[in-house]
Amino acid sequence: MTTPRRVCAIRDPIPAYRRGIARELEAVGYETAEPGDCIAWIQRFHQAAHSTEYRLAALLSIRSEADVDVLAMLRTYDEQVALLALLVDPDIDNYRQALDAGAGGVVDYAASPDDIVAALDATWDGAVRLPRAVVIEFLSRPRRSNGIPPVCESDVRRLAALANGWSVERLANHENFSTREMFRRLQELYHTLGVSNRHQAIAAAARHGLLDGSLETGQGPSCHRAANR
């Protein structure tokens, strides 16, 4: 079986930084790109005749909430893409925010090229490389309760559609939204459920009985609270 080609998009406003990371990645066998629109870049691979020949990754510098939104949209759009967040401000809360938004790995923006490559490689294996202090802080915080906040009926319908294999684009078209607006709404829903991606959201909804068909339908934006279990 042919080994898929690893292709990595690099998103950062500083050309010299992008080129430096690209050189390091290319030295260890990655192909690189610097797309202006990462979602459009991913779409081109989806539409390619031999899309399975590629494994995609994206490195995104996180400087603002807008960058976090881009990270979240990419995770919502394609959960198979390896996403590595490069934190310009490596505060512990920013590590948590990046992971909550869907990053498969998080590293300090000022980390050495070797550390960045190692962190990216780890994401392919489903591992996350984090500083020891960050891990200790995460583990020291209390667990969330098993209950979930109220979930509106329209959100339940979206979860059911996702559980039935609908794409974000199909869901957006069905509700007459743009794809980006649907990304935004789904991210708000994931945040409400305390999860970071569609698989976790579907699992949480099923666990709390939101997908069992017991909710009454109606025309108003009524909300329902799942019983704590």
Rank of each mutant, 00 (worst) to 15 (best):
A204W: 00
D91G: 11
I42A: 13
E181N: 14
F183K: 02
R198S: 14
L186G: 12
A58I: 07
A122R: 07
V151T: 12
Q80F: 08
R96T: 08
V68W: 00
A205P: 03
I116Y: 02
D108N: 13
G105T: 12
H199E: 11
L87Y: 12
C8P: 00
A161L: 08
G194L: 11
D155V: 06
P131C: 05
S222W: 06
L25C: 06
Q200E: 10
D91S: 15
G105R: 09
H50T: 10
L99T: 05
A201V: 03
A9Q: 02
I14S: 13
H199V: 11
Y77A: 06
V135L: 13
L86V: 08
Y30D: 04
A161M: 07
L99Q: 05
D114P: 00
L87E: 08
R44C: 01
E79R: 14
T3N: 11
I62W: 00
C152T: 15
R170P: 00
F183W: 04
C8F: 01
Y109W: 08
I202P: 02
R6K: 14
L189K: 14
T2P: 04
V107L: 02
N197P: 01
R129C: 03
A133R: 15
E79F: 00
V7A: 11
A57S: 15
E26C: 13
T76V: 01
V195T: 04
W124Y: 13
A127M: 01
F138V: 10
G209S: 05
R143C: 04
V68N: 05
D100A: 15
A227C: 07
E24T: 07
A49E: 12
D69T: 15
V88L: 08
H199Q: 12
S214E: 04
R198G: 12
T32L: 04
A72K: 00
V117I: 10
V88R: 08
S64I: 09
E24A: 15
V107Y: 04
A16F: 10
V106M: 02
L120S: 06
S154G: 06
P150R: 14
E34K: 15
A172H: 14
S61N: 07
D121A: 14
A103N: 04
V106C: 08
D125E: 12
M1Y: 08
P150D: 09
P4W: 10
E153K: 05
T192H: 12
A110K: 12
R185K: 10
N228Q: 08
G36C: 03
A33K: 10
A82I: 00
R143Y: 02
S167W: 01
A133M: 06
P113D: 10
R144P: 00
Y95Q: 07
S112K: 04
I62R: 07
V195E: 05
F183V: 00
V117C: 03
